[in-house]
């Protein structure tokens, strides 16, 4: 589902943020991306989101080479990817419901279908009773779950999470991880960037570890040939 084929990303003339990174994350697979601060985790996620473009190499999402995605097509690609941010990125000028509904509004879903989908997503994260609240009135863990509901409401094939448990205590973190497990088990590819070692160790998931832009540990095999096949 996500395939990095010999990716190098260089900012300006400086050092390589990522150097010769290869991996392939299959559908329904969940992996952790770890490494010290500045190792390149965020850069790797940005390449998937097309916030950045690689200096060399190809990124393939669902068999599509991102080099062929023009700037005007980027929004449509992003609709296939759910993202969970460390700081939730919720909008406080609207209710929980409207926050979760935003991706559906953007993709042009009829309002009556939106309601159904939003409530299903909120139910999934256990916050259906909070749909009318303002996100400001929620706890940190609840805000994060609203963020997850928004990330999955469009039923994306890929779920990215950038330090999703950064501000949460271990119990809440475990709950969030369980949610990700659930999505994985229904076929979503989940990639979680974190440096929370205890969290990683508590889960039985493949790990990719970055150090200075290099993958120094890669539990998921890179099968370039399989990834290049048209889907």
């Amino acid at each position: 589902m996500i395939c990095f084929d010999n990716i190098t990303k260089r900012y300006g003339e400086g050092h390589d943020a990522l150097g010769n990174v290869n991996f392939e994350l299959a559908s329904g697979q969940m992996a952790f991306l770890t490494g010290h601060s500045g190792a390149g985790k965020s850069t790797l996620l940005k390449l998937i989101m097309l916030i950045e473009r690689p200096t060399r190499g190809n990124v393939l999402i669902g068999g599509k080479n991102l080099a062929q995605v023009s700037a005007s097509q980027i929004p449509y690609l992003r609709r296939q990817i759910g993202v969970v941010f460390q700081n939730h990125q919720l909008l406080f000028d609207r209710s929980v419901f409207d926050n979760v509904a935003l991706p559906l509004q953007i993709s042009g879903m009829p309002a009556k279908d939106q309601g159904r989908r939003v409530r299903a997503a909120l139910d999934k994260v256990g916050l259906l009773h909070k749909e009318k609240s303002n996100p400001l009135a929620l706890s940190g863990g609840e805000q994060q779950r609203v963020g997850i509901a928004r990330a999955v409401v469009n039923k994306p094939a890929i779920l990215l999470a950038d330090e999703p448990t950064g501000n949460l205590d271990p119990k809440l973190s475990a709950e969030i991880m369980q949610l990700f497990q659930d999505f994985k088990s229904v076929g979503v590819s989940v990639l979680i960037a974190t440096h929370d070692i205890s969290l990683i160790n508590s889960m039985n998931c493949p790990i990719m570890e970055l150090s200075d832009g290099r993958l120094i540990r890669n539990d998921i095999e890179h099968v370039a040939s399989a990834a290049m096949e048209p889907h």
Binding site: G62, G108, G126
Partner: peptide
């Protein structure tokens, strides 16, 4: 959590096959 799981399965049953974003 268990009930959430069940809901999740319901929620996702339509999607699993394709793994594609819903078309409009």
């Amino acid at each position: 959590r268990n009930s959430a799981k069940v809901q999740g399965a319901k929620l996702s049953s339509a999607k699993v096959s394709g793994g594609k974003v819903s078309r409009v």
